[in-house]
Amino acid sequence: MDRIQLAATDRSPQVDFDFASGHLTLRGESYPEDAAAFFGPLLQALRTHLADQSGAPIVFEVGLAYFNSSSAKALMNLFMPLEDAAEEGRSVTVRWHFVDGDETIEEAGEDFAADFSHARFEMVKEPVA
């Protein structure tokens, strides 16, 4: 599976899905005009990777300063196959980054974390820049 690298824009996050290393990253802000068009290829690539690979560990780093409801749905769509892979025995860790004091992003991470029972979900508090 080829690595997916996309630079951040004013409406979409930086993407680095390094499938070979098992390290996936989303950083920045996410409110693309068409969330399905932006996230759809990422979800398809993730599903393909999960189906084709040997079960190597996956770490998904999410560091979004802001995201809209369409992006929240897309994130959940990315998280679901990761949870399924963890249920099947794969090591999956989601690391939710938030700035200390950003209660909105922290609470969103806690809400997502509540949907996981097999994958590891870590809340990562970062200092205010």
Rank of each mutant, 00 (worst) to 15 (best):
D18F: 01
D18T: 01
F19T: 00
F19A: 00
A20V: 10
S21P: 06
S21R: 14
S21E: 11
G22K: 07
G22F: 05
G22D: 05
H23W: 08
L24E: 05
T25D: 08
T25W: 06
T25H: 12
L26K: 06
L26S: 08
R27I: 08
R27A: 15
R27H: 11
R27V: 09
R27L: 11
E29Q: 14
E29P: 03
S30V: 04
S30N: 08
S30R: 08
Y31I: 01
Y31C: 07
P32E: 01
P32L: 01
P32I: 00
E33M: 06
A35H: 03
A36V: 08
A36K: 07
F38S: 02
F38K: 02
F38H: 02
F39W: 00
G40V: 00
P41C: 03
P41H: 02
L42C: 05
L42E: 03
L43Y: 00
L43I: 01
L43C: 02
Q44Y: 07
Q44V: 14
Q44D: 15
Q44P: 06
A45R: 12
T48N: 13
T48I: 11
T48H: 11
H49T: 12
L50A: 06
L50Y: 03
A51H: 13
D52Y: 05
Q53A: 13
Q53C: 14
Q53T: 14
S54Y: 10
S54V: 13
G55N: 13
G55M: 11
G55D: 11
A56W: 09
A56H: 13
A56C: 10
P57S: 12
I58F: 09
I58R: 02
I58L: 15
V59D: 12
V59N: 09
V59I: 15
V59P: 08
F60M: 03
E61N: 15
E61R: 14
E61P: 08
V62M: 15
V62S: 07
V62L: 15
G63R: 13
G63C: 10
L64P: 11
L64M: 11
Y66S: 03
F67V: 05
N68W: 06
S69R: 10
S69F: 04
S70P: 09
S70I: 03
S71G: 10
S71W: 02
A72R: 01
A72F: 00
K73A: 09
K73H: 07
K73G: 03
A74P: 02
L75R: 01
N77T: 01
L78V: 00
L78M: 04
L78S: 00
F79P: 04
M80F: 10
P81W: 00
L82G: 04
L82F: 05
L82I: 03
L82C: 06
E83T: 03
E83Q: 07
E87L: 12
G89F: 10
G89S: 10
S91N: 12
S91L: 13
S91H: 10
S91P: 09
V92D: 01
V94H: 02
R95A: 15
W96Q: 04
W96L: 04
F98S: 05
V99T: 15
V99H: 02
D100P: 01
D100N: 11
D100F: 07
G101V: 06
D102G: 05
E103L: 13
E103T: 12
T104I: 12
E106C: 12
E106G: 05
E106F: 14
A108G: 08
